[in-house]
Design a binder for these strands. Structure first.
Lengths: 350, 350
DNA sequence: TCCGGAGATCTAAGCGCTTAGATTTCAGTT
DNA sequence: AACTGAAATCTAAGCGCTTAGATCTCCGGA
């Protein structure tokens, strides 16, 4: 790799000053066409690629948005050993779909997307390092040190995804967890006459609370008996690094399992199938999120779909808005959800 | 957003020099614990987040790898209008799986991943800008200006994915396209006795050539009649922005369609179903790539699977290798593929 | 021919960090 | 008490770019 050419090299080669070189790339219309051609020719000849670091340093913005992600299913402990072809992550997960939405939105607005996540080895993948690289940052729900987030939010706009607004300096994008859960639960009660419902908790406590509340709303409104406490399943690490739900062997069957997330619901379907329990005949099952895998399993999963691609878009919009107007206060957006009826609740195929 | 704190602010607040502040973060073991605590306290108090631009400028590396991607299915023309929830991209595509492999590999080695792609609006998402941000770059096959790639390759290591090695300065990672295609074709001939085979081309010309060659190898080796020229389907833009294959209405049915990619094969399955042609009874169909959607359709698609996650890993390894030893020459890695027999060729379910 | 002024180009001062190499500190000698 | 050398800290010089503001060019008009 030959020593990289800089503005200085290009300037000398073209017989102009570095300011003109810079101008040629930043504001071509302000330099005379003949000069412009000279500079561009020199740049080409020297294999000039402008340093984004230098640019970022000089003008204070990088043109990059960041996403600090987190694998629920593939924790950092997964290592080289695993056969990459047997990736359990066949279908895009919740976070993948949001990420995809961000990618598209970034592309549309001329931003690049920097993706990082917890990493043992240090390096630029860590939260603070990501933050140092970008103009704005999105973080997925997880136990990130609140102190670090606050610190970063004091420097660049930060939006927390799927994390109910707290009294912090972050923007928040969530969905109507309570309303959505209330709606599916009502469906089970009204359309399918299920009266003995068991709520199964998920992994994100904050969202889980809201969803449980929605569940209770529906149960109470129907005059059913005060719901049991949510069943909070234990999890077990699968060989692939995936977390699988574990249920007590003696769990009595309710008339319906109302799960806080699709992930849990899918595991539950598998467990039930293993025990010879028929869904939805013996027991109904519903999820929450609307991940692709839920459409593909048999029985297909009735669920509450979050508009994930749109969430990604909204995240980017919020970031852009706060970048345009740095004085703007943090934003909170709650997006609507949609109940998707499929087989696992007793509704027709798909 | 208050003006961001810098090393200078932290240094003053802690009563040390900026060198010490820097040292505290870069090489903590070299500063006395008491001083370190002082600096860290100041950093916390001031909400200090180090500027990655400044760091990158100063030490010449950013800790970021880049991926310049490209949506075959969602070209840049897709706009706000489309319902994001009806994203046709339900299942991860070829490029998504490789990207995922890169994400994991980057995380494992402490790199962050910067994702960009063609964008109309300019900004940091463009090829050269991405290049300026990263220590190494991967590009997906497409008609990227070769001149730009050469230029960038003169400054940082670049690896071209799924693009046969050319006489350039890029590293290349591909798979055994020819051998894989020969293998499925042989399977159709030997196991299913198909003798009238039609090859349907894909979108990437270079890979298509190798795959067609593999097809010809098998046909010739079986002593069958010289294969027709590949059928190169026209494509049509779907409302969602997806490119769909179009076949002539009067296309005579061979005994098997051997498709250059899964994408094309899946479209073909749909077209055939629409015409009431039964697969595999009336005609066999095979694909190439091993994308998830091929496992989920009915009939499930017999294909040649590329080790996509591993490709992503290899890409990162190559980049890392050339970063460690800048003198190293570009690398070429061809990975093996695996024939996956499913329903569409006449083999049992799944 | 000379002058004014718009447009093109240049000069020079940072942006915030890293890191040689210089300097200071300090515990241990003698 | 003076001296030593290792450890700790500091000084200062960039890294490559952007951008005010200064300067130069060059054309039309008097």
């Amino acid at each position: 790799m030959a020593k990289a050419a800089t503005v200085y090299d290009v300037a000398k080669h073209a017989g102009v000053s570095i300011a003109t070189v810079s101008m040629t790339f930043r504001r071509p219309e302000r330099v005379r066409p003949s000069t412009r051609d000279l500079v561009l020719a020199a740049a080409r000849a020297l294999h000039y690629v402008p340093s984004a670091s230098a640019r970022g340093l000089a003008d204070g913005r990088t043109g990059v948005l960041g996403l600090f992600s987190f694998d629920y299913l593939l924790p950092v402990e997964v290592d080289e050993g695993a056969d990459p072809d047997e990736d359990c992550r066949d279908f895009p997960l919740y976070v993948d779909e949001i990420q995809r939405g961000m990618e598209l939105a970034c592309r549309r607005h001329g931003y690049a997307l920097l993706i990082g996540g917890p990493s043992r080895v240090g390096g630029a993948g860590n939260l603070t390092d990501i933050a140092g690289h970008v103009d704005g940052l999105a973080v997925f729900p997880q136990t990130l040190p609140a102190e670090a987030l606050e610190r970063i939010a004091g420097r660049i706009p930060v939006v927390a995804v799927s994390e109910p607004p707290d009294d912090d300096r972050l923007s928040h994008v969530t969905v109507d967890n309570r309303g959505g859960m209330r709606a599916v639960t009502e469906h089970l009660i009204r359309a399918h006459g299920r009266r003995d419902l068991l709520f199964v908790g998920g992994l994100n406590p904050a969202e889980g609370r809201d969803r449980f509340a929605g569940f209770q709303d529906a149960v109470r409104a129907a005059g059913l008996r005060v719901p049991r406490e949510p069943l909070v399943p234990r999890t077990r690490a699968l060989p692939g690094g995936r977390a699988a739900v574990v249920l007590p062997a003696d769990l009595p069957l309710p008339e319906a399992f109302v799960c806080a997330t699709d992930d849990v619901a899918l595991d539950l379907l598998e467990i039930l199938a293993g025990r010879g329990v028929r869904v939805p005949q013996d027991v109904a099952v519903t999820g929450f999120d609307g991940i692709v895998a839920g459409r593909v399993v048999r029985p297909s999963l009735t669920t509450v779909r979050q508009p994930m691609a749109e969430m990604g878009r909204v995240v980017v919009d919020i970031l852009r808005g706060r970048l345009d107007d740095p004085g703007r206060a943090p934003v909170f957006r709650e997006l609507p959800v949609r109940v998707v009826l499929r087989e696992s609740c007793g509704c027709g195929p798909r």
